[in-house]
Design a protein around this nucleic acid. Structure first.
Length: 403
RNA sequence: GUGGGCGUAGUUCAGUCGGUAGAGCACUUGUUUGUGGCACAAGGUGUCGCGGGUUCGAGCCCCGUCGCCCACCCCA
């Protein structure tokens, strides 16, 4: 027997229904916010992810499904969605239009990691990317959209926000931080020491208690933001306050991907396992430029579908459609033609075996049908069909032509 | 990559002191003449994850191996 690969799952029945429910809910809301659907390839040039996600990230460093294709191209299964959408934005020369473009997408992402609850090697994200709008209002609208999606799905969350600064205030801060860290490096854990070199900002996020104590006096990025970044961050908080969206400023919130700047946010659920981030995103004003496009401000987010699936309740399933059955072979032949006609307007379940009326009713019930239509000997003689509403229990015998 | 837990029917699991397997659920079919959900009855499958070892005898004990799950790391 051949099983799916490690960390890969088949979704069916209740799970696939949840999946669809989440995607349709999110898509509808995204369209209301002015986003249009974009579908990009799963496979991209490896260079795309190295340049956008960043070589220092774990994703690029060790989690990519990377290989040479038959044409000797170095390619990758996408580990996240933003890079591909940004690439499409540039490839299609939209960066040369002085306009805003907003896209939503969903699909499989691939990361070669050790699977656990809420973390798979093949998983799904729903995401939105907005290009060309540099205003912090857009950051706010994205957060508002995610809130709407979670509210609609009936999911509880808490929101964390931070500002990562821009290319003007981040580098000086980084230098300041590194010199602080160098001073206490002997007392920091091994991981932190490694990160001082690779990504010093992430040292702040260390879960080691001893490190956290030492880091209490570290220079904070929010105290070192330039005026523009600082004003925007305050404005974002004002907007959230005014709208009544609860949040917490988390100065240690560092998005794992290199392309983020300014606003960063993460939606957390306490009702699932340790992989508690159910949505994350932020601004990435420099990414388009890094990918050889014309400098374009941008902001986006992604939802983790599987993590959300663990949290949603499906609405109760209602009886739906028509069950058709016959009590003898001749009737079934006739039923088949009726079924083909009815299929144009509703869900039809058809039974090919002749059965007693009782057995048919049982089957129709099991199939979850709302109506049942049966042709037996009497109906065959009269050119009629016996119909019953399985919910109201009303029944009637009608001419076949009346259907 | 590093820990810990677990592999028995389609599924959830039980299985005593070692004596070659069971229960619920699900599924199918019935419960006399053309009226469903309930109830009752009947039906079937297991290389007991795989490979060795100990033993008269292994689902159970020992060794190895593979797989799954959870956690670290990282992230959605």
């Amino acid at each position: 027997m051949i099983n799916p690969l490690r960390g890969m799952k088949d979704l069916m029945f209740e799970e696939s229904q949840k999946f669809e429910h989440i995607i349709t809910t999110a898509s509808n809301i995204a369209r209301n916010y002015g986003y249009s659907y974009i579908e990009t390839p799963i496979l991209e040039e490896t260079a795309l992810f190295k340049r956008s996600v960043g070589e220092s990230s774990d994703i690029v460093g060790k989690e990519m499904y990377q290989f040479m294709d038959k044409g000797e191209n170095d390619v990758c299964m996408r580990p996240e969605g933003t890079a591909g959408v940004a690439r499409a934005f540039i490839s299609n020369k939209l960066d040369r239009q002085d306009a805003n473009y907003r896209f939503y997408y969903y699909g499989s992402m691939f990361r070669y990691e050790r699977p656990q609850k809420g973390r798979l090697r093949s998983f799904h994200q729903f995401g939105c990317e907005s290009f060309g709008e540099g205003s912090v209002y857009e950051d706010f609208m994205l957060i508002s959209m995610i809130k709407d999606i979670f509210d609609e799905l009936g999911i509880n969350f808490s929101l964390k926000i931070n500002s990562l600064g821009c290319h003007e205030c981040m580098p000086p801060y980084r230098t300041k931080l590194v010199s602080f860290l160098e001073g206490i490096k002997d007392d920091l854990c091994e991981d932190c020491n490694r990160r001082i070199l690779t990504n010093p900002i992430r040292v702040l996020d260390c879960k080691n208690e001893k490190c956290q104590t030492l880091l209490k006096t570290s220079p904070k990025l929010i105290d070192n933001l330039c005026k523009n970044c600082n004003d925007d961050f305050i404005k974002l908080q004002t907007l959230l306050n005014e709208t009544g969206i609860a949040y917490e400023v988390d100065t240690n919130l560092v998005r794992g991907l290199d392309y983020y700047s300014k606003t960063a946010f993460e939606f957390i659920s306490n009702d699932i396992g340790s992989q508690s981030a159910i949505a994350g995103g932020g601004r990435y004003d420099r990414l388009v430029e890094f990918l050889d496009g014309r400098s374009t401000p941008a902001v986006g987010f992604a939802l983790g579908i599987e993590r959300i699936m663990d949290l949603v309740q499906l609405p109760e399933i209602k009886r739906e459609g028509l069950y058709l059955g016959g009590m003898n072979e001749e009737a079934i032949h006739l039923i088949l033609k009726i079924a083909r006609g009815q299929l144009k307007t509703q869900k039809v379940t058809m039974e090919y075996k002749p059965k007693s009326l009782k057995a048919h009713l049982k089957s129709a019930d099991k199939a979850g049908a709302r109506m049942i239509g049966i042709i037996g000997e009497d109906e065959l003689l009269n050119g009629t069909i016996w119909m019953k509403d399985l919910e109201t229990k009303e029944e009637k015998t009608i001419q076949l032509g009346e259907l």
